[in-house]
Amino acid sequence: MMAERLAPPPRRIKLLVGVFEQETGLLAAARAAREQNLPVYDAYTPYAVHGLDAAMGLPRTRLPTVCFFCGLAGLAAALAFQLWTATSNWPMNVGGKPFHSLPALVPVSFETAVLLASLATVLAFFLRARLWPGRSPVSLANGVTDDRFVLALGPAVTFDPRAGEVLRQHGAVEIREIEAAP
C-alpha cells in the first residue's frame, strides 16, 4: 500500500531513522510499524535480509514478466531474422541443405533469447531501483554496507510518538530525525 506506485515524495522529506545491530530487531520493528499503520519509508541492510520484503509489505516485483517477454522477443527475433536471411533475403545453397533448415537455427535463437532476457532484466532492475553510475547513495546512517540495519519511517511520522516507540522497543541503538532527499 505504501508502494512506490504513489506519487513521488516531495523534494525533502523528514524521516525517523532507527539504527539496529541485528536483523531481527529490524524485522520486528518493521512489522510492528506496519501493524500500527506507520508508513515504512525503507530499510537499509548490509545483506539481503530474509523476510524483509514481507515485513515491509512490498508487492511482488514484475521483473520476471519483463524477463519472460524479453526472452520471448529475443527468440522470435532471432528465428525470424535467420529465416529471413536464409530463405528470402539471401537464399544460398549451403551444403545441399534446404534453405529453411530449422534445427540449425536453434542454437542462435536460444542464445539470443537468453541474452536478451538477461540483459533486459538487469537493465530493468537498474532503472527500477534507480541505480546508475553517478547516482549518489541514500545515506541515512553510517555502516549500512557494513554491519548496521536501518529502518526509516516516514514520511510524516516525526511527530507521531508511536514511531519512536516502535524503534526503541525493538532495540534500535540510535534514533534520529533526518531530512532526506529521496
Binding site: E4, Y44, T45, V49, V122, V138, S139, T145
Partner: peptide
C-alpha cells in the same frame, strides 16, 4: 557501485533478478 544503498526495496528486486539470472 551505481549508488547502491542497501535499500530493502532494492534488495527484494535484487534477489529476484539474481534468481532469474541464475535460472537463465
Amino acid at each position: 557501485s551505481l549508488g547502491w544503498s542497501g535499500s530493502g526495496r532494492t534488495w527484494a528486486r535484487y534477489e529476484t533478478v539474481y534468481l532469474l539470472l541464475a535460472g537463465l
